[in-house]
């Protein structure tokens, strides 16, 4: 059976910038697949190519074995696309929007009413469905958008940053809903720049950076591949750099310490990579004590997805976010996404 989504060597240029340079991924039927990366990594562009909103420059895209470029209309029937920015007509009620959606997907007239009631119920929109969408809060808007994306019962639901800008309650509600969809067999492809979202939801994840997929696997396999444990050490709440340097060179001599970095953004705390499951904390504290250095706080953990990202790109996701947000031009991007 063909994979739900197959993307092979996708390339997309806008003017002189390569939005997507080399993206390949395969989403199996029935799984939640996460595309993780900082803003500007090419996630949205990848989805726009998949959903026939923009033409790729090179590469193949298939949905359930159907070529996106050659047979876009058929692909559109199989896909449900929920964009990052919820675009509703604020004058219509939720139900009227769903009715419009039903006519755009040519649902048989006999089933429209029940189908709309079903998605309204499924997303808990009963109390809002007959109000104008202009009165909705962000969470309700998103839920109506999800309902619209599901109305024609797509094989694959494609979600671009499904919880950006949502409060925590709404976010958890969306997460639970997506898990429930998976249990019913719907394939979900979502992008996110939230580590915890991908970690919590995705069966498999592809990490994308600057238009290139740099790693793809299950979250736990990716973490295992990075190897080692992470130790975060704070000598003082705000340690002077000299003291941090001293501690760093001291700890680097320990056999189980594989890497040591000073994080100046967090009061010159030390980030160490140590051999997995080693009993590192006691030895570290003793070493510091011998040298007359205090310990403000110390913690050991398994590697996170962020460490996976760090190992692959040499920077944390947060750093990449910051770098991206200062170099991006939101206005130009809006233009780019306009049709």
């Amino acid at each position: 059976m063909a994979p739900a989504v197959l993307i092979h060597k996708l390339q997309k240029r806008y003017g002189t910038t390569d939005a997507v340079k080399d993206v390949s991924l395969q989403v199996e039927a029935g799984e939640i697949f996460g595309l993780l990366g900082p803003n500007g990594a090419g996630k949205t562009t990848t989805l726009r190519c998949l959903c026939t909103l923009t033409q790729p420059n090179a590469g193949t895209l298939e949905v359930s074995g159907i070529s996106v470029v050659e047979n876009p209309r058929l692909v559109r029937q199989h896909l449900g696309y929920v964009a990052q920015e919820v675009a509703l007509d604020k004058v219509l009620t939720g139900r009227e929007l769903l009715e419009l959606q039903a006519s755009l997907y040519h649902l048989p007239r006999a089933v429209i009413k029940t189908r709309i009631n079903t998605v309204i119920q499924l997303l808990g929109l009963e109390a809002w469905a007959d109000n104008k969408t202009g009165t909705y809060s962000g969470g309700i808007r998103k839920r109506l958008d999800l309902a619209a994306g599901l109305l024609h019962q797509p094989d694959v639901l494609v979600l671009d940053e499904p919880t950006v800008g949502l409060d925590i309650e709404s976010r958890v509600a969306v997460w639970n809903f997506l898990r429930q969809l998976r249990e019913q067999g719907t394939t979900v492809l979502l992008t996110s720049h939230y580590l915890e979202e991908v970690d919590a939801l995705a069966d498999r994840v592809a990490i994308i950076d600057q238009g290139v997929v740099i790693a793809a696997d299950t979250p736990s396999a990716l973490k295992d591949q990075v190897g080692g444990d992470r130790v975060t050490l704070r000598i003082r709440e705000f340690a002077p750099l000299a003291e941090a340097e001293q501690a760093k060179s001291l700890l680097q001599t320990l056999p189980f310490v594989q890497e040591a970095l000073i994080n100046s953004a967090q009061g010159n705390s030390l980030n160490l990579v140590v051999a997995a499951q080693s009993d590192a904390l006691i030895t570290i504290q003793q070493t510091l004590q011998t040298a007359g250095l205090p310990t403000f706080g110390i913690a050991q953990s398994r590697p996170s997805l962020d460490d996976v990202y760090l190992a692959a790109t040499g920077r944390t996701l947060l750093d990449a976010e910051l770098a991206a947000s200062s170099s991006r031009d939101p206005k130009a991007e809006r233009k780019k996404n306009m049709r």
Partner: peptide
């Protein structure tokens, strides 16, 4: 649970009208 994905039932509107 009528919202089962259309794996068994064919996708909407193909040849339906």
């Amino acid at each position: 649970m009528p919202l089962q994905p259309g794996r068994s039932s064919s996708p909407v509107s193909v040849g339906a009208s």
